[in-house]
Amino acid sequence: MTTQRSRTDIAWLTLLLLVGATALSMWLRLPKALLDVVVVAALLGKARIVGLDFLGLRSAPAGWRLSIGSGIAVVAGLALALSV
C-alpha cells in the first residue's frame, strides 16, 4: 500500500512537471512544428500517468490498456495531423 501511495504521489508530481514543461515551451515561443510535437508528447505522457496510476489501468487486463491508450493516441495523432 505504501508503494502504491508513493507511486500516486510521484505520478501527481510528474503531472505537474509536464504541465509546467508545456507552459515553459509556450513561453519560450518554440517554432510551431516543434511546439506541437512537445504539446502532443506531454498530452500522451499525462494521459498515460492518469490512466495507469490514477484510473488503475496498470492492474487491468492488457486489452483495456491497449484500447484506451490507442484511442487517446488516435485522437491526439489526428489533432496533430490536422493542425494548421
Binding site: V40, A42, L43, A47, V50, L55
Partner: peptide, 22 residues
Amino acid sequence: VAFWHAVDLIWIVMFPVVYLLG
C-alpha cells in the same frame, strides 16, 4: 473516483487540442 479520473483524463486530451494545437 474512477469517474473523476475519467473526467480528468478527458480534460488532459481536450486542453491541448482546443487551446494549444493549431
